[in-house]
Design a protein around this nucleic acid. Sequence first.
RNA 1: GGGGAGAUUCCCGAGUGGUCAAAGGGGGCAGACUGUAAAUCUGUUGGCUUUCGCCUUCGAAGGUUCAAAUCCUUCUCUCCCCA
Length: 386
Amino acid sequence: MEFDQITRRAVQIFTQEGLLERLNSGKTLKIKLGADPSRPDLHLGHSVVLRALRVFQDMGHEVIFIVGDYTAMIGDPSGKNKTRPSLSFEETRKAGKTYFDQATKILSKEKTRIEYNSQWLSKLSFEEILKLTSKYTVARILERDDFKNRFENQQPICMHELLYPLMQGYDSVAIEADVEIGGTDQTFNLLVGRELQKEYGQRPQEVITFPLLIGLDGVEKMSKSLDNYIGLNDSPEILFEKSMKIPDPLLFDYYRLTTDIPLDSVRETINSDIRKAHIEYGKEIVKMYHGESAIDAATRRYFKVAQGDVPDNIPIRVVKANEIPIIEALKAIGAVTSNSEARRMIEGRGIKVNREVVQDYNLKLDVSNECVIQVGKSKFFKVKNS
RNA sequence: GGGGAGAUUCCCGAGUGGUCAAAGGGGGCAGACUGUAAAUCUGUUGGCUUUCGCCUUCGAAGGUUCAAAUCCUUCUCUCCCCA
């Protein structure tokens, strides 16, 4: 990806002139990336920002990866708001590492430095914190969308939550960031960084925001907790299968934001054969995250299932008996969590054994020979006696 | 500090003594249709049980009652208004 592609994809740049000036200065710039250790699972949505960062690295700049361990350790004491579970010191380090491992599928390891924000945030005195808070007004903090929504919906907002933007902004001060990149949902936080740097006598960082990738549900932004994500750690098969499930109207955005494929040809394929466009997208993503060699296996599974065949390499579950009730088998393979659920699945005709729909939930499975259980459209398991 | 409103099953939301495992909607899951898409239609959506039925659940803990999501007491939390 070339640099002009960054600017083309960006939603907003504050400020364009400042950014150009720094890039032309010949200095190695410090590009800030904030990581939330309470959510260390990265997905394609994160890749949008990471890919932009990669471009900066390729130009010789340094990415400073800031793990928000301080906020994560404090968590949210108000019992009702479970969005920010508090983590122990060890957990934050572990999450930071997990995050880093995934992010470096896209970023260069050599040009990425990790910092933990407890290093500086834990040292602030109350006086300094007051100084920080005095730079901002409540009205301005409440401008931020998620606060505004919670406020309007009469949801609780705790005092310390109002400080999060300031803490993040202070991170920029602490590392003297030159540039910070994030999704449009972070716009406010990123701009707070600029304000605070100014207060501390630093040149305010340049801020670039990128569009948020909408998840597979076609409505919400991609996130692990909504289970509408395509994970950077997903297997090639899953990656490909999920690619096929991207809502049609969003496919172009996925191409645009997560691949380097020229958009003119994308447009053409989408208009002429949307299914083919999905397939090509899936292949590209598999290639990007698992290499060219993984494409074959990933697509083979998909097409086999689509034809009504049983795919290769399905997980095997060994049981001790020669005969096992179907309900027990479904629990054993983790397809269901209770007998009632198993019964519902069977009554809904969602379970097949050796390609046959199971009609009777008292069915006893003969597993002296291997048998294949299919749950829904694409989940397969083999069960056999040891 | 004073006054008012409220907390229901994944979410929103009805329910004010038995017919309530709890309407309706959303979301989820499964099926039909299809391109393993969308839209649409159907079923399902606490657990155990073949049926009967039993158990757990309506912020928490006690209490009244043959019987409570529903009544009483205390507590916790949230929101609004006034100061």
